[in-house]
């Protein structure tokens, strides 16, 4: 799937109850880059604003307050990180679940997403782990960015859909600002 493309998940797979958002990346030999990459899920309203800072799911906050999204510490398959979404338990105020990837700027050595060789987001059916869709290589075109919105699962009149975003930002703060997250 290319940037901007979407797919009607629950219309195509009516028995889809739990999906997994998985991210695969290849940092090549850049150990510093690989060590500082973080995947997170943002639980947002209809206007793509995060509901609160407690709806930011990442390694230091592994579940949303409703426990409907869980980030798995043990990456599964070929994914570096995954977020599991139990669709029936997602509260009605959560309209969009956005998967992002950013570089934590805590290291002495600065790295950028432009050094990624490959970056793909995909959707799995947790029941059987069948891959439903996979994005194009989102690392293409990245240069000096530090954060990227990879894709989003969102409600639609015909059920849940998935859309590839591929929107990159110069800083994680810029991405936070776009999703209304204040800290």
């Amino acid at each position: 799937m290319k940037r901007g493309a979407n797919v009607a998940l629950t219309r195509e797979v009516p028995n889809l109850r739990t999906l997994v958002l998985g991210v695969q990346w290849d940092a090549g030999g850049e150990a510093v880059l690989a060590d500082n990459l973080v995947m997170a899920a943002l639980l947002c309203d209809r206007s793509s604003h995060i509901l609160s800072d407690k709806h930011f799911v990442f390694f230091n906050q592994l579940g949303s307050p409703e426990l409907s999204v869980q980030q798995l510490e043990q990456a599964l398959g070929n994914d570096q990180e995954q977020v599991e979404v139990h669709l029936a338990d997602v509260p009605t105020e959560v309209e969009r679940i956005v998967a992002i990837l950013y570089i934590n700027e805590g290291s002495l050595q600065r790295r950028t997403l432009g050094q990624l060789r490959r970056c793909v987001v995909r959707v799995l059916n947790a029941d059987g782990n069948a891959e439903l869709v996979q994005s194009e290589d989102l690392a293409t075109g990245l240069t000096g960015e530090l954060a990227i919105a990879l894709g989003e699962v969102y409600r639609h009149t015909d059920g849940w859909r998935f859309k590839v975003l591929g929107a990159a930002y110069k800083s994680v703060e810029a991405l936070f600002g776009d999703y209304g997250l204040t800290v």
Binding site: K2, R3, A8, G166, A168, Y169
Partner: peptide, 11 residues
Amino acid sequence: RHHVAPAAPTV
């Protein structure tokens, strides 16, 4: 955003 999402085709 740096990458403007094109019109969303349904696949």
